[in-house]
Design a protein around this nucleic acid. Structure first.
Lengths: 286, 286
DNA sequence: TAAATAGTGTCTGTGAGACACTATTGG
DNA sequence: CCAATAGTGTCTCACAGACACTATTTA
C-alpha cells in the first residue's frame, strides 16, 4: 500500500516481517458474560453462575466466560461461550465494560471484557447441556451451572440457589469520586456472606445491572426477556422487577402502546393467572 | 486462604507457582484516547491527533495512546499518556468501548480500550511538550501532535488542520442490525479523502462522539469543556456545538439554572464579544 | 357472588419547544 | 443611535405521575 520507509529504512512490509510482539505487556483477555433473565413467574431476577473446578477460586461460583481466541472478536468469544454453556443463540448481547486491575487474577495478568446477555427462558432444562459440555471439554474450569435468584435492594445484593443451598451476599455502598470537574457515583461492594463470587465478578454484575436499569426504561431491552407473545400485566411485572419500583398501569400502558401489537387472542397472565389480551413486540419503526 | 486441592491434587498456592500463561491467546492491549475540546471562540470542535513515525500507518494521523503496562490499569495508562503527551492532569476521562477485531493491527493482535477525555483549553501552547516528549522517549511512534477541526454532520465526518494542510474525511452511514429481538443502529464509515486515519481510529471517534452526545444533555459533562468562569451565552454556544442544533435561550437557561451560580461579576462572552453575567459551575447536589 | 385483576378516563405537574418582548451593549 | 445580543415572560404540547372508575375473570 505504501512504499514509505521508516527511520530504520524499512518499508511497512519489511517492518511487519521483522516485528515481534513484546512479552511484558501482553495480558490474557477473557470475555465474561452476565446472563440475566426473569423467573417463570416474573417474580425474581435470575442470573446464570458456573462453579469453577480449577484454581484459582476453586469451587467458587463465577460468571460464565473464557479466553478470547486469536481469530475471533471478544463479541464472538462471548457468543461462543454462551452457545457452548447454555445452547442459546441469537440472544441480546452487549459489551458493558472492560476490567483491567493488574491483580484481579492471581495467575497472571487477565483483563476481562464484560458482556450482558438477556434471555427469556431461565428454566433448568436449558442448562442440561452446560454441565456435560463444561466437564467434557476444557471450557476453562466449569463444574456446574445454575440459575441463581438475584436480589438487589438499597444497600445489598444477593445470589441464592435453594436447591444447592448456596447464598452469597454483598453490601453495596454508593461512593462519589471526581472525574475532571464533575462528580461521579460508584458502587463499592463488601462481602457479607461466607461464600463469595470468584475474581471481581461482583463488580461486573453491579456495573452491568446499573447499565441495564438505565437503559431499560428508554429502550426495548425488555422484549429480550419476554417470550414471543405476552400480556401487558406480565410485561409490566418485568419492568417493575428490573426497575425495582411499582408502575402505574395507565402510564405504563401508554408508554408501551407504540411498541406492541395486539394479536387479537387472549392468554393467561403468568404473574396473575387471569385472562388478558395477548400482545407481540412490534419491530417496526417508532 | 483455602487449602482445597484441585483435580491434580494441588492447593491454590501450588497451582499458582506452576501456572504458566498460554501464549496464543495473549494480545497486546493499548489505551487510545479521544481528546476533545472546543476552539477558543466556541465555533468548532477540536480533536487532538498525533502523527505516527513508525510502521504501520507511518506518517498517518492517529489518536494518542499506547500500551497498557503490566503494573497499571488501562485507566492509569490513559492518564499517563494524556499527561505525557499534553501535560494535562485531572481532566475528565472515561472508558468508552473496547475494540477487538483480530486484524485491526497488522503487526500482531492488538486490542484497544478507548477513552474519551474532555478539555477546556485547545491552544497549541499546550502541545508544546508533546512533540519533544514524543520524540524524546519511546512513546509508541509519535512525530507530531496537533489540534484538528472536527466537523460532524449528517452523512460525513471530517478532520482538518489548515496550518499543516491536512484534510481527512469519511462519509458515515447509519446501518441497522439485530441484537436479540431488537434493532440497533450503527454508524459505518467509508473513506472519502486521500488521507486516512491510522488503524480503526475513525470507529473509535464515531463511537465516542455518539456517547458524548447522548450524555451531554443529561449530565454535567459540558463543564469539563469550559473554563472556571463563563457566561451563559458561551455555555449555550458549547451545547449547540456538541449537540449540533440551535437551542432556545429561555429553555436552555432554565435547564442549566440549577447547575450554575452567578459570581455577581460581568465578563465578555467569547462567542459574541458582548458583556454578560459571569457564572461558575455549582458542584453541590441538585 | 365476591375478591382480585384487566382495562380505561382524566386531572396534575414538569419540562422541552417555541415566540414575543424589554434591557444592554458595541460599533 | 441602531443593530445585535443579553435577558425575561409566557403559551403550548408531550408525557410521566397519580387516582378513580368500570369490566372481566377466577375461585
Amino acid at each position: 500500500m505504501t512504499q514509505k520507509k521508516d527511520k530504520n529504512g524499512l518499508t511497512e512490509k519489511e517492518f511487519l516481517k521483522e516485528y515481534k510482539a513484546g512479552d511484558y505487556d501482553r495480558p490474557s483477555v477473557t470475555a465474561d458474560i452476565l446472563v440475566l433473565g426473569a423467573s417463570a413467574d416474573l417474580r425474581t431476577l435470575k442470573i446464570l453462575l458456573v462453579k469453577r473446578d480449577e484454581h484459582p477460586y476453586l469451587d467458587r461460583w463465577a460468571l460464565p466466560g473464557g479466553f478470547v481466541h486469536g481469530d475471533e472478536t471478544a463479541f464472538q468469544a462471548a457468543q461462543r461461550k454462551l452457545s457452548n454453556e447454555t445452547g442459546l443463540e441469537g440472544v441480546y448481547l452487549d459489551q458493558i465494560y472492560t476490567f483491567t486491575r493488574p491483580d484481579r487474577d492471581p495467575r497472571t495478568r487477565v483483563m476481562t471484557i464484560a458482556y450482558l446477555a438477556l434471555v427469556s427462558d431461565t428454566s433448568d432444562d436449558m442448562l442440561r447441556g452446560v454441565t456435560c459440555a463444561g466437564l467434557g471439554e476444557a471450557t476453562g474450569g466449569v463444574r456446574d451451572a445454575a440459575w441463581f435468584d438475584l436480589v438487589i435492594d438499597q444497600g445489598s445484593i444477593s445470589f441464592t440457589n435453594a436447591e444447592r443451598n448456596v447464598s452469597i451476599e454483598y453490601s453495596i455502598e454508593n461512593k462519589r469520586f471526581k472525574n475532571g470537574r464533575i462528580f461521579y457515583e460508584n458502587w463499592v461492594s463488601s462481602l457479607k456472606s461466607k461464600e463469595e463470587l470468584a475474581f471481581d465478578h461482583i463488580e461486573i454484575i453491579i456495573e452491568s445491572f446499573i447499565k441495564l436499569k438505565a437503559e431499560f426504561e428508554h429502550t426495548d431491552l425488555a422484549f429480550n426477556m419476554m417470550g414471543d407473545t405476552f400480556t401487558l400485566p406480565d410485561l409490566q411485572a418485568l419492568y417493575e422487577l428490573v426497575l425495582g419500583k411499582k408502575l402505574y398501569k395507565t402510564n405504563f400502558r401508554a408508554m408501551v402502546a407504540p411498541k406492541v401489537d395486539a394479536t387479537g387472542a387472549k392468554m393467561k397472565s403468568i404473574s396473575s393467572n387471569k385472562m388478558s389480551a395477548e400482545y407481540r413486540y412490534k419491530e417496526a419503526a417508532h
